[in-house]
Design a protein around this nucleic acid. Structure first.
Lengths: 212, 212
DNA sequence: GCCGCGATGTATCGGACCGATACATCGCAC
DNA sequence: GTGCGATGTATCGGTCCGATACATCGCGGC
């Protein structure tokens, strides 16, 4: 999962670890807190060893002079390689079971702008299926096993059931929108000209405008 | 977390591993899928080594005869010890930061029937605070950084924000109910007489009765 | 009668990820 | 001029997961 996220972010721009963590937090804030350095840095090294990302050392050419003083270790900027882009595409397209859990789905969804429509649809439907299963489980417990459980546990289940129903409805909207929709796919920023970023993905979900 | 959950469940009845997993899935179905055996069994051994649970071997006395044939390995039933109950009480009362993440809160909440009112209130308020922080983070991103993000990422944040607002409202209800409420605490089933289980916890949350 | 098969049951192993910790630099406010 | 919060890289132990293995039980089909 972390691997996929890193590859995806580096496709938008070269970054160093710290930046990667912040971007990730911004992009996945709805799903998970923030990635730990304890997994980030080892993963970066793993990806580099695999040839999917490359170190693009700081000191932008002109720094030939003034080298020795304080040694200036500086941050390590990573770039994605051609193999890395292939790897990303492969990871995005192939859906294992972990693609549909909370984190996995969140990461995949966050990169939907770089995902083709068929895959998007497949992932949304897989996620819906999974949430529907959880929902049925909760309904079962609330029905059959209700008298075995205390009031707090019951309330927890009710709240969970509510969240499931909401997410299914949300997914339905997205799926309908996707089916009837244009196919935007990747804007590919950075390369080739000054086109504005994110002008292409379709507007998913309307009717969600008012705020209490 | 697993440790707390096991100690809590064994307080309701002696159980073997498989059963523990199922009960846990039923009780925490709203929070997480199901505990893995890869963490369950090692944890059971750790708890046993610490003296918090004890093995209460199957074969209920009368099985003195017919011993050798097929050896009958059978399941291992665990019971909580007095030290284990103390440990549980201690874990329930002391709140670290992990008490307020999704899993931690879920586990604590699931055992609210065995938690005193002051602690319940503290945990509910801590959780609310944490969710409010996440909510503010999401509002920030949706406000300040909106143009940097693509439509899908934005939609993910919106959905997350919605979930946060809902959970805060849910917590408010529970907190209000708790403040103005009776203090039920532990029914202590199994020991001392044939009292009906879970007749004591207060009804948390009303106004949640209709279903679409 | 017996055979397979799904539920029950215990167990291990490698790997992913977290949380705490350490340490160094930079800019700026006091 | 100095302290302190943000920036930045890095490691280590521990928790938990997912895959896998293996053995038993009860029951329905042939």
């Amino acid at each position: 999962m972390l691997e996929l996220a890193i590859l995806g972010l580096l496709q938008e721009a070269p970054m160093h670890g710290y930046e990667l963590r912040k971007e990730l937090a911004a992009k996945l804030g709805a799903i998970r807190a923030a990635i730990s350095y304890g997994s980030l840095y080892p993963t970066l090294r793993r990806l580099q060893a695999a040839g999917w990302i490359a170190e693009a050392a700081e000191t932008p050419a002109t720094a030939e002079e003034v080298p020795a003083l304080t040694s200036r270790r500086g941050r390590v900027v990573y770039t994605i390689t051609a193999e890395g882009k292939e790897r990303f595409a492969q990871l995005i397209a192939q859906a294992g079971p972990e693609t549909y859990d909370d984190t996995g789905f969140g990461v995949h969804f966050a990169f939907f702008a770089r995902t083709d429509q068929a895959t998007r649809l497949r992932i949304l439907e897989g996620r819906r299926r999974k949430i529907e299963e959880r929902r049925e489980g909760l309904r079962d417990v609330l029905g059959r096993a209700a008298e075995r459980l205390d009031a707090y546990t019951l309330e927890l289940q009710r709240h969970g059931l509510d969240a499931c129903e909401r997410e299914v409805r949300w997914l339905e909207e997205l799926i309908a929108n996707e089916r009837s929709g244009r196919a935007p796919t990747v804007p590919e920023p950075g390369t080739a000209g000054g086109r504005r970023e994110n002008d292409s993905p379709p507007p998913p979900g309307e009717s969600r405008t008012e705020r209490p």
